[in-house]
Amino acid sequence: MVDEEKVRIMTRIASYEQKERIQEIEEGGYYESDYIRSRLFPIIWSYTVAYALLLLLIALYHLDFLTSSLSMAECRELAAAALVIYILLILVSVFLWTLHFAAGYERSQKLRKEYYGELKKLEQYYVQNREGGSE
């Protein structure tokens, strides 16, 4: 016989175990610092590539100026300015994305609590049934 109450609990658990949600639930088990750190590295790498592409676009735009004879001092100044802008860009983006991931971590903690609550209900259901069966 199919037990409706058990199917309801298992359906809710299965709903949590949908692909995207189970990943979010598992990530809620990390420490917050590890969770945020693991996400910041791809961002830093992506933004570095994006900055390189942006520099290429800017260099193409000012190709005439760059191909004219630039002194070493001017080249060093340009390189220093590009590096400073890059560091500022990375710092600002890391700050903003940290806020975003902190909110995501809180969400995954909440989801994790709900999921384990449902698992506990199922466990209690099995215990009650076992006790009822033995009586």
Partner: peptide
């Protein structure tokens, strides 16, 4: 280049 830039800055995440 511009599409790649958009991807790496924003759409990837």
């Amino acid at each position: 280049l511009i599409f790649a830039l958009l991807y790496f800055v924003y759409i990837r995440f």
